[in-house]
Computed example of a mutant assay.
Amino acid sequence: MTQLFVGLFDDAAIFPPGNADMPDAVRAYRDRRSSPLPGPFVCSLPRWEELRRTLADGPRLPVSLTLPGGAQDVPAAVAQAGAEPRVDLVALEAPASAATLTDLVATVGRQVPPAVHTYVELPWADVTAAQVATLSGAGLRLKIRTGGLVATAFPGERQLAGVLTAAVRGGLPFKLTAGLHDPIRHRDPATGFEHHGFLNVLLATARALDGGDVAAALADQDGARVASAVAGLGDDLAGRVRHHFVSFGTCSVTEPVDGLLHLGLLPEDPR
């Protein structure tokens, strides 16, 4: 069962609402690298120099670099990361829209080495079969925002179900970001926001693959039922799920792992 969660949690500790200091975030990331669960360390291009000043001797830091400027940030990101021997650039994350996607695809094709995965963050409404085909044909991946600091940043279960279904049907890998600290869908008592659960997303991806009800899997707030369904995924289906649902960005790796332990989905604490 642990294999289902390997590399699932991209460490976005320096982003809101966590806002960890860069030195603390890098130190904590390196301290937990013996665990198989974290993905890369996520940093934004405007904070690249701050990250470099924090690095010391030690193993290369796997980094996913977010590019607020989209296509125009790609050349600088590739050049700067390529010149830093203490960093292993594993992914870029760049926003786009239906109107700017063609330019981003062309820029990535010219500038980004094949070993670096590029995630294109699209608004939910722009995730159509045509846009999925464009990304898939270019060897790119999809990024979707599933939360934030305002209620409108959270897609409903039917909106997210449409995105997941389109990605699966198009053979497209994706990552999610924001609002997914908890394994199970729930309402935050402080904000009133409805948060998706990452176990719900794993199960919903499986349902998209096997023809089940994707929206119902996302909406289920019964933790024991969702956990049992996820635990029942066979190895083949679990592998196909993770081919699509690659990871999600979280400012806390501790909270998702605590949630898995509470639900009995990890045999022991891997940290």
Results as ranks from 00 to 15, higher is better:
L149I: 10
L122S: 02
C251F: 10
A216H: 04
V78L: 15
A125L: 06
E49M: 15
G197W: 02
G70L: 09
L61I: 07
L55W: 07
P17R: 12
V105D: 05
K175V: 07
I184K: 02
A153F: 10
A238S: 05
V253H: 00
R271H: 12
P155T: 09
G170A: 09
A115I: 11
Q159W: 05
E50Y: 11
G249H: 04
V201I: 10
P95K: 01
D21F: 13
R141G: 06
G82L: 07
A79T: 15
T146L: 05
H196C: 03
C43W: 04
P123C: 07
L89P: 00
T177D: 00
V253F: 05
F198N: 02
T146K: 03
N200K: 05
G232D: 10
P267Q: 12
L199K: 00
S252T: 06
A106L: 13
P17Y: 08
A13L: 14
G239W: 02
D236K: 11
A77P: 05
F41S: 03
D213C: 08
D103M: 11
L135I: 10
V87G: 03
T134R: 10
H195D: 08
P75A: 14
F174K: 05
V132C: 07
T128C: 03
P113D: 12
P68N: 13
T107L: 07
L164Y: 05
F248K: 00
L261N: 06
A56F: 11
L266H: 09
L135K: 01
